[in-house]
Design a protein around this nucleic acid. Structure first.
Lengths: 231, 231
DNA sequence: CGGTATGTTGAGAACATTCAAGCCCCGTGG
DNA sequence: CCACGGGGCTTGAATGTTCTCAACATACCG
């Protein structure tokens, strides 16, 4: 099923991305080299399944390029995204402490490149090396905070509010009156990330038109940032 | 506002609870003693606010008895629970890596006793002591998994399904045809935990009557566990 | 230029929320 | 022990939001 393109060795470009990743950026040079020794790179095509819920978990991943969708199914077969991982994000890091099966499905939303680490090896390194343990704590903390934010947003905000919130996040803290954003992925993926059906995202965008939001393809113009904050 | 009842020293009962907590249970005796030296105990009355979103974060907590509600407000003042912490759960552990302000509000849902640690001291210990770092990783992993489950459940399940899921969780993996549960807290707290308005929980319970669920006060009878799994 | 995937729009249904009213349980005090 | 009061819980009705399904439009890619 998966048209996997594995290369045991990192190329220079992937290596440069990987070492700037939050997970590896703060390691000492000794442990960084140890990590680079055990990493392998794997590529997936759009819609390839990386792993499925319940499968034996052997690896944890760090996204180098592209986006990966983590999702679960209910028994009717309906899918719900739990998280969307982009460059720099780690996948399945919660299994570093314990757990021998994946807790959700992972699918490439587009062609992706991933750094792959054997869970067992990273576990052992985290036990021995302070800086690896610290990197794991950092990953887990960051991810936990964003997941708790996700719960809060799901429970507090309507669809247009979630979209406005996402757009303001993307703008960053620039104090501009207007802004322009290019979505890094398809709208259907954004919908899943925000816990919405694609139709609901579409409707949210059109309801934001009155707040000065113009959508054309992946490019989104925001004429009045402060108006968007009032939503 | 808070009728806080602080005792710098742990009493024997609290100490026994604390050392069995997931956070402390696996520490070596040396580090365990260090942790017990820096801990203080604080008590709160029902509805007391432990801290508010945005406040400077000085402590992280471990619940010894009672339940604590973590929640956020939207700008209309509506509250949404992010998490309900019971005995053994840690609060604000995601700030151990970084972050100097609390990310949500915390309120005692009933009279509670908490073990309190200075974030800065635990940070320092996690940097030096392997077993503290490991305990932090364990806490974060467990919490992250349950929060991701929460996102998935919110997005996949209807109110009756969430309640059924909670009840089956409480039953444990006992293979009984029937079971009886006593809720450890008020129904309104359960509603918040499941991301529902209290009325929605009530309606969910009545819709589960046809599946053999009988509610009387805090006591819930389940006549057919397997039927509940079909919901 | 055509075809497929992606996105939009409409209508209807399902689900949850809100507000309001009433009930029940439980603890207090007589 | 009982009466009372109050908070928590339940129920009803109306509202709002999102989902689903279907049809249509648009964009993208060969």
């Amino acid at each position: 099923m998966n048209t996997v393109n594995k290369s045991l060795k990192l190329n220079t470009r992937d290596r440069n991305i990987l070492v700037k990743t939050p997970f590896l950026a703060n390691l000492g040079s000794h442990t960084l080299n140890r990590m680079l020794e055990i990493v392998t790179v794997s590529g997936f095509e759009a819609r390839d399944i990386l792993f499925r819920e319940g499968e034996a978990a052997e690896y944890f991943y760090c996204v180098l390029s592209g986006y990966v969708r983590l999702y679960r199914l209910n028994k009717d077969g309906r899918e719900a995204d739990i998280r969307v991982c982009g460059p720099g994000d780690t996948v399945a890091e919660c299994l570093l402490y314990k757990g021998d099966t994946y807790r959700y499905n992972a699918q490439a939303a587009e062609p992706v490149t991933l750094a792959r680490f054997e869970l067992q090896k990273v576990r052992e390194m985290a036990e021995r090396e302070q800086d690896v343990a610290k990197a794991v704590i950092e990953c887990l903390s960051t991810h936990l905070m964003s997941t708790m934010d996700c719960v809060a947003n799901d429970r507090l905000q309507t669809a247009p509010q979630r979209v406005a919130h996402y757009l303001l996040d993307q703008c960053g803290s620039e104090e501009c009156a207007s802004a322009s954003i290019r979505l890094p992925f398809q709208k259907s993926l954004l919908a899943g990330k925000l816990g919405l059906a694609p139709e609901a995202l579409s409707r949210a965008f059109s309801s934001l038109r009155r707040a000065g939001v113009t959508v054309r393809g992946r490019v989104i113009q925001i004429s009045d940032v402060s108006a968007l904050k009032q939503i």
